[in-house]
């Protein structure tokens, strides 16, 4: 038995075994990525299963965040970013990293939550509605309905329903992060990307977000990057282990954590490096 499962909190959810009819939401194939001259990803291939939580783990600098940030083309904001290969969004196989695909439209389909909670300097309501406004949704009652739904999905509705007009900065760090999750959920994304969403939070706020993520998988496909192996073990269905920009192993979370097939994965999980 490994370390990671020992520290599992009560919030643990038993990973559901991959059912044979589970569909693939996205498929990464032979993805290379460069920051200018530096190649950060080397031929990464992995599936993202529909309505499941996929965790990406690995030591810092292994490229796990880089990989995640390819999914919504946030790298395009910085000069010198270059992709090769594909991330196909199923079922139509749209290659998210293709040059001919507009990164803004990709981001409209793929929601993202960042490491540090970063609500906009606006009201709680406006924060969640911002993702709806950018796609032209202006109908007041529809916006209100979707904001409420997203806040409920993000398990923060009860805490903020009386103060939707208040600035988002008044919320605590954990609440801000759940607000950011609600903001990403409101437009009903095809994929929800979480980039170490609890690294800036205290253990209680972390536990709340973890149980929330597990629930989310009923509605949305989640890809989460985490440096916390316990977290990956607790909340994910599939796990990818990365090292030096390469995907070392991908599989069912239980298998990765109990019976990794690659030595490097075993070394990392048992804390021998990283």
């Amino acid at each position: 038995m490994n370390e990671a499962l020992h520290i599992a909190s009560p919030a643990v959810t038993t990973p559901t075994p991959l059912s044979p009819e589970a569909t693939i939401r996205a498929r990464v194939s032979n993805l290379d990525f460069w920051y200018s001259k530096f190649q950060a990803l080397h031929s990464v291939s992995m599936p993202i299963h529909n309505n499941k939580v996929t965790a990406i783990i690995g030591p810092s600098g292994c490229g796990k965040s880089t990989l995640l940030r390819c999914f919504n083309r946030i790298h395009d904001l910085y000069p010198g970013a270059r992709y090769e290969g594909a991330i196909e969004l199923m079922p139509d196989g749209l290659n998210l990293v293709s040059r001919s695909v507009d990164p803004i439209l990709v981001r409209l389909m793929v929601g993202m939550v960042f490491q540090k909670p970063n609500p906009f300097p606006k009201s709680i309501f406006e924060n969640v509605a911002s993702g709806l406004y950018v796609r032209g949704l202006r109908n007041r009652s529809e916006v209100e309905g979707r904001v409420e739904k997203a806040l409920k999905q993000a398990a923060i509705w009860d805490e903020v329903q009386d103060r939707l007009k208040k600035p988002a900065y008044e919320l605590s760090g954990g609440q801000q992060q759940r607000l950011c999750i609600a903001r990403a959920l409101a437009p009903e994304p095809k994929l929800l990307l979480l980039d170490e969403p609890t690294s800036a939070l205290d253990p209680i706020a972390t536990a709340k977000i973890e149980s929330l993520i597990a629930d989310l998988a009923h509605d949305v496909t989640v890809v989460i990057v985490t440096h916390n192996m316990g977290q990956a073990a607790r909340i994910s269905d599939q796990t990818a282990f990365m090292h030096m920009g390469k995907l070392i192993e991908f599989g069912e979370t239980e298998q990765i954590f109990t019976n990794p097939t690659v030595d490097q994965t075993r070394d990392y999980i048992t804390g021998r490096f990283g």
């Binding site: 904001l77 803004i104 970063n118 903001r183």
Partner: peptide, 18 residues
């Protein structure tokens, strides 16, 4: 302005001018 604000604004799918 912290880059986090910029990234999250692009992250919701806003175009450059927005």
């Amino acid at each position: 302005i912290p880059s986090g604000l910029r990234e999250s604004a692009y992250g919701i799918g806003a175009n450059r001018w927005q």
